[in-house]
Simulated assay, not measured.
Amino acid sequence: MTLALPRLAVSAPAAADGFVGRRRLRRLGLRKPVPFARLLGVALLLGAWAAGIHFGLLDERKLSAPWTVLDTGWELFRDGSLVDNVVASLRRAALGLAIGVVVGTGLALLSGLSRLGESLIDGPLQIKRAVPTLGLIPLMILWLGIGEEFKVVLITFGVVIAMYIQTHASLTTIDKRFVELSEVQGVSRTQFIGRVVIPGSLPGFFLGLRLSVTGSWLALVVVESINATDGLGKMMSSAQNYGQADVILVGLVIYGIFGLVSDAGIRLLERKVLSWRRTIAY
Rank of each mutant, 00 (worst) to 15 (best):
L5F: 15
L5D: 11
P6T: 09
A9T: 14
V10K: 03
D17C: 11
R22D: 04
R27A: 12
L28G: 05
L30A: 09
L30W: 06
K32T: 09
F36P: 07
R38P: 04
L40M: 08
G41V: 10
V42H: 12
A50T: 00
A51R: 09
G52H: 11
I53P: 04
G56Y: 02
K62P: 00
S64R: 00
D71I: 10
E75P: 04
V83S: 10
N85R: 13
L90K: 01
R91I: 04
R92C: 05
L95S: 02
V101N: 02
G104H: 07
S111A: 15
G112S: 05
R115W: 03
G117Q: 06
I121N: 04
I121S: 05
D122R: 12
P124Q: 02
K128G: 10
T133F: 11
L134T: 15
I137K: 01
M140Q: 01
M140V: 12
W143F: 15
L144M: 13
E149M: 07
E149H: 12
E149F: 07
F150D: 06
V153W: 09
L154I: 14
F157I: 10
I161K: 04
A162Y: 05
Q166M: 12
H168W: 11
F178K: 09
E180G: 04
E180C: 01
S182F: 10
S182T: 11
I193S: 06
V196T: 09
G204F: 05
F205V: 09
L211G: 10
W217M: 10
V221Y: 12
V223W: 07
D230G: 06
D230F: 05
G233A: 12
K234P: 00
A239S: 09
Y242N: 15
G243S: 07
D246F: 10
V250N: 08
V253I: 03
F258K: 05
G259I: 00
L260V: 06
L269V: 14
L274S: 08
S275K: 15
T279K: 08
A281Y: 04
Y282Q: 14
